[in-house]
C-alpha cells in the first residue's frame, strides 16, 4: 500500500491522489511533501545521527547548511540532542527508531507515514515514540498515517482507522464512532464461583464473554446489573469490580475477524500473515 502511495509502483487499476498529486504520475512530488519512516533499519551505521539526518535532508533537495541546522533541530525534538554525534552503529533500537523519525520529519512534511514505528521498542521508548507522534500532529499541524499490528498504538495516536484484509478495505472510519457501534457490555471481575455465575447468566438468557476471572456481559439496560447482582447472590460468587466496558480498537478488530470468519484471539495474530 505504501509503495502505491509513494508512487513507487505502477498500480494495475484504480487511482488516487496524495496532497493533490496523482499517485501514478507524480511520485517524486508526493515524496517531496511527505515523510516516510521505514519499518526496518534504514540507517548507515557508519554515520553519526546528525550526519544521517542531514543527508536525509539533502536527498530531499535541502541546502547543506539548511539540512545541518534542521538536523540539529529535529534530533533535539526526538530526544537525541546529546547523542547526535554518536555513530548510529552504537545506538539502541529506540534511538535508531528516533533517528528514523528525525530523518522523516527533517523537512516538516505535511503527511508522515510511519511503518510500525514502535517495532522492537521497550515500554518507555514506545511511550516516548507515541507521545512524539501525537505531538507531531498537535504541534506540527500535520497528519500521521501509521501501520501497526498493535491496535493500542494506533488508538493512542490516530483518530481514524482503515483495516485491510486480502487487499480490500474491510472497515474505515473514526475510531470512537466505530467503537460506539459495538455492543455495550458490563465488565465484572469475579472471585470464587465464577463458573457458577457464568452458568447462571447463560441460563437466564444473557450473553457472556469470559476471560478467566473477567467476564463481559452484554448490556441490555439496568436489568443487566440487577441480574448480575442476583446471580452473585444466588451462586455465592464475589463480584469485586463492576463497570461499563469501553470497547477499543482491539474489540473492533476481533469483531471484524469474526465477521470475516477468521479465527483470531487478538491483533497479534495478524503478524506474519501476508494476506492481512
Amino acid at each position: 500500500m505504501f509503495k502505491c502511495i509513494l508512487g513507487l509502483i505502477k498500480i494495475s487499476e484504480g487511482g488516487g491522489e496524495v496532497l493533490g498529486n496523482d499517485i501514478v504520475t507524480m511520485g517524486p512530488d508526493i515524496r517531496s511533501e511527505i515523510g516516510y519512516m521505514a519499518e526496518y533499519d534504514s540507517l548507515d551505521p557508519g554515520l553519526s545521527a546528525v550526519d544521517q539526518v542531514r543527508y536525509a535532508g539533502e536527498l530531499l533537495g535541502m541546502r547543506p547548511d539548511q539540512a545541518t541546522q534542521r538536523a540539529h533541530e529535529v534530533l533535539q525534538y526526538v530526544g537525541l540532542q546529546d547523542q547526535r554525534y554518536r555513530k548510529i552503529e552504537s545506538f539502541s533500537t529506540g534511538m535508531k527508531q528516533a533517528t528514523k523519525l528525525a530523518c522523516a520529519i527533517v523537512h516538516d512534511p505535511q503527511i508522515l507515514f510511519c511503518d510500525e514505528p514502535t517495532n522492537g521498542l521497550d515500554t518507555s521508548a514506545r511511550k516516548f515514540m507515541l507521545d512524539t507522534l501525537r505531538r507531531t500532529i498537535s504541534d506540527g499541524g500535520g497528519t500521521v498515517i501509521m501501520t501497526s499490528h498493535v491496535m493500542e498504538d494506533i488508538q493512542g495516536v490516530c483518530d481514524r482507522v482503515v483495516m485491510l484484509s486480502g487487499g480490500k478495505v474491510v472497515i474505515e472510519g473514526r475510531i470512537d464512532e466505530l467503537a460506539r457501534q459495538i455492543t455495550r457490555e458490563i465488565e465484572i471481575s469475579v472471585w470464587g464461583g465464577a463458573s457458577n455465575l457464568e452458568q447462571w447468566l447463560l441460563v437466564n438468557g444473557h450473553k457472556v464473554r469470559r476471560m478467566g476471572r473477567i467476564m463481559r456481559v452484554e448490556h441490555n439496560g439496568d436489568q443487566t446489573i440487577t441480574a448480575i447482582l442476583q446471580a452473585a447472590t444466588e451462586t455465592g460468587a464475589q463480584v469485586r469490580v463492576l463497570k461499563e466496558y469501553e470497547p477499543d480498537l482491539e474489540d473492533i478488530f476481533l469483531l471484524i475477524m469474526r465477521k470475516l470468519g477468521r479465527s483470531a484471539k487478538g491483533s497479534s495474530d495478524l503478524k506474519g500473515r501476508s494476506d492481512s
Binding site: 509513494l6 516516510y36 534504514s42 533537495g61
Partner: peptide, 14 residues
Amino acid sequence: RNGTSALYFSRPVS
C-alpha cells in the same frame, strides 16, 4: 545490507 536504499527511494530520488 543496511536497508539505506529506503532512504533514497522514499525521497524524490529516482
